[in-house]
Structures are given as structure tokens and as C-alpha cells.
């Protein structure tokens, strides 16, 4: 097959993944602790169904926002991971590599601490998830870290050094979290641990009103970065010689990834694995380093995998008990391992 044929074949794969997303979306709608027949799902989604019926309430209040959150988070984390891997030329980079999600964690840990200190009975009973105070503090922590990284990025020209700085920030924030944990009650610790396991199920419609535009903006920005990302594959010197302003590009890449990671972590907790693994799975499927294919590819595969994980986590029998981070790692990692073993000859290309 010649290359042109291959490229159109890859476009078909993109369509296939889109179809997969639609199918998984309906599976997510239909299955759960209560089974809802497909024709009913379709009816409710098209605006029909009896007002106030149980099925309608379950779908509109719970399953629909949850599936949307999974789609947005999956796409956002995956594209963030791809951009970090390309920018830092490092296959181990992910959206949280610069310490942005640990910044969010620190914000949430502070909330946990305040609950303990101030004896705010009302919040003590509440879960950390979905709580407006939690979200605000998580975003504050993530954005503070993001600004710190962007400040360093202006000073430090070398990308490897910047990466190390990001990892150092992660260590510091984790240590601060540990201190806070040490002074917390076991009840709060449990609540914090639950937050750390991630979930798509605590985002209601009012929060989606913030999540949807921010993530769509992040995804849109990533499409604007296709050409710069391709140039960065050649290394910074070649990229600069081809007219790229490397400093500005780096700023926008970190900014976009940081924005996506910050809001997703704030609403869903620190979701691991997807952001690191999806870019690799995508590169293995498409066998290209061209971001014109990789960007839409990672977004679609990220959405698909997040929906699949959410579906597994909510299968009857698990009774919503499986946290999302457990599912992504336990079911996702073997997929990556098997793909690698199948394609042993494939070179790891960041």
C-alpha cells in the first residue's frame, strides 16, 4: 500500500474511533446499577420521555453528565500527555509531569486540613468530591503551580532542566500534602484518599458549565499547535531555523496542557495513566509522528478509553465501587503491554 492510501486508511480509523465513542456512550447510558433499554435512552436523549420518570432522572442527572465528563477528561488528558511528550522529547512525560496535578492535590489537602481545624460540620459530612470549595482550592493549587512553571520557563531555556524543575515541584507539593495528612483525622484521610482515586461521577450540570467550555478551549488550542509540535520533533534548533519562536511555543504548550490538567484534576481528581498511555497507543496504531493525525487521534482514543473505563467501573456487580484510577491502570496497562509485545520491532518514538 502506498503512503497516500495509508493516510486515507488512517482517516478511516479516525471515523471508526468516532463510531466507537458513540457506541460506548450508549453503553454508558444503558448500563449501570439499573439497566435502561436502548430505545428509552434514545428517547430521553432526544428530549422525549416522561418528565420526572426514574429513567429520565437517572440519565439526565447522573449518567449523561458522567459520560460527558469522561469524554472531556479523556480527550483533554490524552492531548496534554502528547504535547508534553513532544515538548520534552520524553516518552515518560504525561500531563501531570510538571507538577500541576500535585498542585491541585495540595489545594485539596488544604481543604481537608481546614475542615479539620475549623470544625465546619456541614462540610465534614460532605465528600471532598464535587464540593465547590474543593474545586476552587484544586484549581487554585493547579494554577499556582502552572504560573510557577511558566515563570521558570521564561528563565530556563533548557527543556530537560525545566522538566526536572517540574518534578522537583511535584516532590515539594507531595511533601506538603504528607505533612497535612499527618495532622488529619482518619476520616478526612479516607475522604482525601477517595479523591485521589479519581472519579467522573461527581460532576453535575452546573460544574459542567465550566468544564465544557474550558476543555473545548484547550482542545481547540491543541489543534492550533499542530505545526509547532511537528517542528519540535526536529529539535529546538531545527525548529528555530524553520522560523518557529521556540520560547513562545513552549509557553503556549505548557499553558494549554496546564489549563486542561488543572480543570480536569479539580473536577475528577488526579486521573493517572490515560494521559501517559493514550499517546503511546495512538502512535502505535497510526505509526506516525505527524501531529496532524496524532492530535485528533489521541483526543478520540482518549475519549474512547475514558468511556470504556467508566463503563467497566460502573458495570453491575462492581456497584460503582471501582474508582476510575483502578480501572484505567488495571485494564489499560495490560492493553499497552500487549501492544508493545506484539510490535516489538516498533521503535519508541516520542
Amino acid at each position: 500500500m502506498n503512503r497516500v492510501g495509508l493516510i486515507s486508511a488512517r482517516s478511516w480509523i479516525l471515523l471508526l474511533f468516532t463510531a466507537g465513542i458513540v457506541v460506548l456512550f450508549f453503553l454508558n447510558m444503558a448500563f449501570g446499577s439499573v439497566h435502561i433499554p436502548f430505545h428509552q435512552v434514545l428517547r430521553v436523549l432526544l428530549g422525549g420521555g416522561q418528565e420526572g420518570s426514574t429513567w429520565r432522572i437517572i440519565l439526565v442527572k447522573s449518567r449523561l453528565p458522567q459520560a460527558l465528563t469522561a469524554i472531556l477528561a479523556g480527550g483533554g488528558l490524552a492531548v496534554g500527555g502528547l504535547m508534553m511528550q513532544t515538548l520534552f522529547r520524553n516518552p515518560l512525560a504525561g500531563p501531570s509531569i510538571l507538577g500541576i496535578s500535585s498542585g491541585a492535590s495540595l489545594g485539596v489537602a488544604l481543604i481537608m486540613m481546614f475542615i479539620g481545624q475549623l470544625h465546619l460540620a456541614a462540610i465534614t459530612q460532605a465528600e471532598l468530591f464535587g464540593n465547590m470549595a474543593t474545586i476552587i482550592m484544586a484549581i487554585a493549587g493547579a494554577v499556582a503551580t502552572l504560573f510557577l512553571i511558566l515563570f521558570f520557563a521564561r528563565k530556563i531555556k533548557d527543556n530537560a532542566m525545566l522538566l526536572i524543575l517540574g518534578i522537583m515541584i511535584s516532590y515539594i507539593t507531595s511533601a506538603l500534602v504528607d505533612i497535612l495528612k499527618y495532622y488529619s483525622t482518619s476520616e478526612h484521610l479516607h475522604s482525601y484518599a477517595m479523591w485521589g482515586l479519581g472519579s467522573f461521577s461527581n460532576v453535575a450540570w452546573p460544574q459542567l458549565e465550566l468544564l465544557i467550555p474550558v476543555i473545548l478551549m484547550g482542545l481547540g488550542l491543541s489543534f492550533l499547535l499542530i505545526k509547532p509540535l511537528n517542528l519540535l520533533l526536529l529539535g529546538e534548533n531545527y525548529a528555530a531555523n524553520l522560523g518557529l519562536n521556540v520560547q513562545h511555543t513552549r509557553f503556549f504548550i505548557i499553558m494549554t496542557t496546564g489549563l486542561l490538567t488543572a480543570v480536569i484534576t479539580a473536577f475528577c481528581g488526579p486521573i493517572v495513566f490515560l494521559g501517559l498511555a493514550v499517546p503511546h497507543i495512538t502512535k502505535m496504531i497510526f505509526k506516525t509522528s505527524n501531529h496532524q493525525l496524532l492530535i485528533p487521534g489521541v483526543i478520540l482514543i482518549g475519549m474512547l478509553l475514558a468511556l470504556a473505563c467508566n463503563f467497566i467501573a460502573r458495570l453491575p456487580g462492581f456497584e460503582s465501587a471501582l474508582p476510575i484510577n483502578v480501572v484505567t491502570s488495571i485494564f489499560g496497562a495490560p492493553i499497552v503491554i500487549s501492544v508493545i509485545l506484539k510490535q516489538r520491532r516498533l521503535k519508541l518514538n516520542v
Binding site: R3, R89, L233, L234, G235, N237, T288, S289, K347, N349
Partner: peptide, 9 residues
């Protein structure tokens, strides 16, 4: 310079 263009045509 080292490049990462192995999977490019």
C-alpha cells in the same frame, strides 16, 4: 542534533 522523526516518512 538528535531528532524524533523516525516515524515520519
Amino acid at each position: 542534533d538528535k531528532t524524533n522523526v523516525g516515524n515520519m516518512t
